[in-house]
Amino acid sequence: MIIDSNCTLGPWPFRRLRHSDAAGLLGLMDGLGITQAWVGAVEGIFYRDMAAANEQLLERISGHEDRLVPWAVVNPAFPGWEEDLQEAEQAGFVGVRLYPNYHAYDLADPRLGDLLGAVKALHWPVAIYARVQDERLHHWHMLVPPVGFAGLPQVVERFPDLPMVICGQTWQFAQQFRGLFAGTNLYLDISRCEGVAGVADMVQAIGADHVLFGSHAPLFYLEAAVLKIQEAGLEGTAREAILHGNATRLLG
């Protein structure tokens, strides 16, 4: 059993993707033995109207909710996010995705604290995207800096029990913040974990209980995440935790 914690659906504005609809992603998943994928709307990265983006996602996954589990994109720096979150809860979403750099706020922003408090009240998890695409390859007139994580310790201190996934970070990041993870619900996905057997280095730094299988498909080749697990040489409980155990626990 494999749960992919990091997938998106919808047209990427800067390149034609071959598997950006439900049928395409499910085809990839079937080929690689992926049981379930957590999905968010690409439009949520770029729209102002998050409710519209989330609604499009639900339309896309209609009939496939058993395998494509929807996460709502919410922007705490935009008016009305409280209503967006409420609508998402009523519509069957299971968690919240955040893009602080695309939505122009940082981790110290008090509006983020308000949102995380509301998410905690729902007993939902939250995913913070560190990067969507390598900055060196951004569009010439849409240069989006990576998210700064200097404020992460304060966020974790304030919300120690909140299930929180940071997507798109490295094993070096895991080493830098290794002291934050013990006793928390903080996780890293492996979508941008590089280096030779880099996932093993990430596990060594923060423990397998804090690492999630995540591919960033269909922007990335889904197979990359599968091969990273193979490259790391992980076995037994550590492998099972990363492939599905942590994800299952995270969603309760």
Binding site: E194, G195, V196, G198, A224, V226, L227, K228, E231
Partner: peptide
Amino acid sequence: ATGRSFASQLAK
């Protein structure tokens, strides 16, 4: 490699 993962590049 060794900066990059063999896996991520092989998967391409």
